[in-house]
Design a protein around this nucleic acid. Structure first.
Lengths: 209, 209, 209, 209
DNA sequence: AATGAATGAGAATTCATTCAT
DNA sequence: AATGAATGAATTCTCATTCAT
């Protein structure tokens, strides 16, 4: 029940306060651009404590990634239950990602930076986790079944998956540009519309007439 | 057949040699991670010359961006001539971007990082250039005309544009993940297929039956 | 009897040790000629600590100036109390300046350089402090009163003040030349004599017969 | 009769144009702070030419000093002819210095900087030149004769000389401060007044009643 | 746990000087 | 004489990391 000298910032244990602040820092400046000093200041904590908890900047970065990825996959697996139809699966996916990224817009930026990094060690691990989540496999299977049953056109399944995923994630990555170019004013509404637009375009694009 | 004193890489004037090397450096490490020393070495040039020509690392970075953006827009305007149909416009766009990004995979990574940077000064300028290129405006008009004439479904035009763009650019950004997840082996072929898949899905998704 | 790890010069806190050493460095080489490395070495301190405390060479320089100016004005205001006669005021002024400059010969050199610098930011501030010290104003009033009462000749008051001040400070600035030209051997004695010579010449020069 | 490509600046041979510009540069920034690039630009000349003419920055500095000192002594010896009375000598001295420094205010700043430099090699040489000019010796002799003949008080001759010189030079050095402190508006007029004020105060201060 | 101070290895930038033409 | 480009040796400043308390 110690009482801090001055400092503001609410409770929360220092470790997760550091992680919160570090996410923003890494997202904004990248690993190289991130400053341990700045993280310490923003977390209202002594710089040495960061080393006490995380031992290095690199390590802190990995801890940040880990925490956020875990959160993402937890949410995915909670919503993408088996035995959903194609329509339901797509809708669930769209819902999860949009909910996630709106809540924590820094996280996709982090991933963006990893994607820009040539020999990122994070990307392979991320790919592995995605695979483990079974989602791409499942959607692929659903599409294939649709084709086989004649409900869907004979599209290239891999391409279709990529198209669906890029439509989902792409906006979060490109919004700084697209919002400007298209003059999007009400971002909130645009994202709401986006969810239905994606599913609509995709399904309409793959279904037979 | 000029003969510089010693050094390797005689070709090209040093200024554009620096720009070439710097593009790779910035793409690989980001602005903060980039090392002026490394750029100088790889360009076989005295470090001070970089400052002679570009006055600072920041400035060099902007010069790199400028050159590549200009190249991109030059190509776009060469191919996206007016009086093309919707189908032709989409195909031209797809073609240009894919050609561009295959030729110079470093450039999108640069843009990626800028997209992740909160108060990037580059993004607004890029948006302005895109606007000036008239492309989004033109595709929007074509879609609207299609809707009015009953050839296209009454889709949300803005959303459609975003969907189309993200399907195009998204893959280049996300390929490190999607290639792994989907087990893409032949990247070249995948990209060739991608071009038709995008246009096909999009058109099929917006056209009335 | 504290014991710092290794290093020489244990005394004093590092901050003021840096300021001491820096005063000498700046006086000897000027701001541009001063070397942060040399200051760090002479202060037996890690170079980075200078930036830790003062953030830049420029800033360190200003801190040095500030400290010494404050010391000077503190001494002036201690000795130039009100209700002194003209004779006493002049004598006090002479005493203070000579004492000061003998104790710390580096400081006037710093001021000298500032005087030579066209848009020095220090000089205006120094002038303001001098004004605040009220000394020139006070001596001017005493002279004017003397003139009014007929004890002093109707000299130009401003010119008289400048004459008095330049006689005082001038020697410290010009001594490298005058000592040589006049063959001054015993500098200590010369300065002792100087104090009375200045007051004598000045008073004799302004008093009516 | 070659014709320069662009460039402004009037004629004058480049060598003396460099010297003019360099005087200002050295006066403003000191030797260490002076930039060869800036001198070259301001003289509208290629940097390499400075080395062609003067072989090094140090050398250029010495050339600047030499030229200006020679000008000063030439003027002094033209005006300080022998067989002048004390009054005439003092007046001539005052006149020469004030004329000189008004015409070229940069030069005293250069000397100021040398005076601030601990082991200046210039000061000893300057002192030698002053000695050779015989002026201090002559004024000393005149004062001594005045004392001997009873026309002057038995003042300390060395101190008197120093007082006179510092009153003359002091203002040029200290004017950035004194002008502010005393609120001197009309600098031109102040200097005119100064000439008579100095001689007046000095003579009145040394003469017997 | 917590803190202010300290450290060393860079990294960007500068600048006098020289070279090739 | 004249020029733009080139060079190398500093020099300032930064920053992740560690230490003493």
């Amino acid at each position: 029940m110690k009482r801090k000298h001055v400092k503001a910032k609410p409770e929360q244990d220092p470790k997760s306060r550091i992680l919160d602040v570090a996410l923003k820092e890494f997202a904004a400046y990248g690993i190289e651009g991130a400053r341990v000093d700045r993280i310490a200041n923003n977390a209202s904590i002594n710089k040495a404590m960061i080393y006490y908890y995380f031992s290095s900047k690199e390590n802190l970065y990995l801890a940040v990634l880990k925490r956020n990825l875990e959160g993402m996959f937890a949410m995915l697996s909670r919503h993408l239950t088996e035995h959903l139809s194609l329509e339901e699966t797509l809708a669930a996916f769209v819902e999860v990602y949009h909910t996630l990224f709106i809540k924590q817009p820094e996280f996709p930026r982090l991933i963006l930076r990893e994607l820009a990094t040539p020999k990122s060690s994070v990307i392979p691990r991320l790919a592995k986790s995605i695979n483990a989540s079974q989602f791409p496999h499942r959607i692929g299977k659903l599409i294939q079944e649709g084709i086989d049953s004649g409900q869907l056109r004979a599209v290239n399944v891999q391409q279709a998956i990529v198209s669906f995923i890029t439509m989902n994630l792409g906006y979060f990555f490109l919004s700084p540009i697209t919002d400007r170019v298209l003059g999007v004013k009400n971002r909130k509404q645009f994202i709401v519309d986006r969810k239905t637009a994606i599913v609509d375009l995709f399904l309409y694009g793959v279904k037979t007439r």
